[in-house]
Structure formats: C-alpha cells, structure tokens
C-alpha cells in the first residue's frame, strides 16, 4: 500500500515537475508546480509529517502560488519567446544537469542501500505538538529572527509596490 501510494505520487511529482520546466505559458507552469506541491504533501504524509503536509498545501499551494497566478494574470503574461541565450544555455546545461543527477543518485544509492527503508506509521513525530515544542524551545531564536525577516519582506514589498503606484 505504501509503495503504491509512493510510486503514484512520486510519478505525479516528476511528471508535473517536467511540465513546470517544459510548458511555455507561465499559467501552465504555475499549475504544474501546484501539482508538484500537492504530490509532495502526500509524500510528506508517508514520511510521518502530517503537520508539514498541511502547511505545505496551506502556504505553498494556498498562498505563494495564488500570488504567482495573481501576478501572471495582472501582467497578462503570454507565452515565452524563443531567444538565443536560451539555446546556448540548453546546449551547455543539459549535460551538466545529467551529470549532476547521475552523481547525486550514485552517492545516494551508495550511502543508503535498499535495506534502509521507510515504513508508514513507524515515526509519528510530525504532529503539531512535537513540531511546535521544538520550534518554541530549541529553535526559538531562529523563529524570532524569521519573524523579523518576514517583517522586512513585508516592508520591502510595500516599498516596491508603493513606488510602482505613483
């Protein structure tokens, strides 16, 4: 059961991921990215992180991607034009990326052989209580600094948007 769910959603994530890269229209890419995020949320559930799965949908799919779609629609962005730079990047990039992926996979398979497995339900620390208490005790300082970062981000967005208005 675990393996079937994992395979279905891993395949979905990869297919959506390919769509993110290959679709020329930004709206299609954005929708594919939402698909990736939703599939990953299911995979988080398999890894015993229900809280993060919900937050993944809430923050990524529900807030960030809505913002992306909003901007795409606001700017009425059309399909991407072909350009010379892109062609050169593709020529140099594809071998490099394939090499990167091969090395990564090789290292992963060497470090974690088949015997190291993941069984659904054997680790259930991803509850709100556990994540929350870690967040507010061990990681209190990073948490507070993140709130500062968010504040700065809000100010930055307001300043940039304000200039744009007048």
């Amino acid at each position: 059961m675990d393996a079937i769910i994992f395979l279905i959603f891993a395949a979905a994530a990869v297919i959506f991921g390919i769509n993110v890269v290959l679709r020329t229209h930004p709206v299609s890419s954005a929708l594919a990215l939402i698909g990736v995020m939703a599939s990953l949320a299911v995979i988080y559930l398999l890894l015993g992180a229900p809280f993060l799965a919900a937050v993944q949908v809430l923050v990524y799919a529900g807030a960030i991607m809505v913002l992306f779609l909003f901007v795409i629609m606001l700017l009425n962005a059309g399909s991407e034009k072909k350009s010379r730079g892109a062609w050169m990047a593709r020529l140099a990039g594809v071998p490099l990326l394939v090499a990167l992926l091969t090395i990564l996979s090789f290292v992963i398979f060497r470090m974690y052989p088949r015997s190291v497995g993941v069984k659904f339900g054997s680790f259930a620390a991803g509850t709100v209580e556990r994540v929350g208490s870690a967040l507010f005790t061990t990681y209190l300082l990073p948490f507070e600094i993140t709130s500062l970062l968010v504040l700065i981000a809000i100010l930055g967005a307001v300043v940039l948007g304000y200039k744009e208005l007048d």
């Binding site: 991921g17 890269v21 190291v116």
Partner: peptide, 23 residues
C-alpha cells in the same frame, strides 16, 4: 508488495525534482 520503501527512493525523487528546477 513490500511494506517498506527504500529511503534512497525519496532522496532520488528529491534529486530529480531539484535537477528539474535547476534546468
């Protein structure tokens, strides 16, 4: 069907998605 999935599959999925993002 095996009850456990190798951890490496998750990591490779992650690597594939990362490579796609980089691409």
């Amino acid at each position: 069907m095996p009850q456990t999935i190798p951890l490496s599959w998750y990591l490779v999925l992650s690597a594939v998605l990362f490579a796609l993002g980089a691409a």
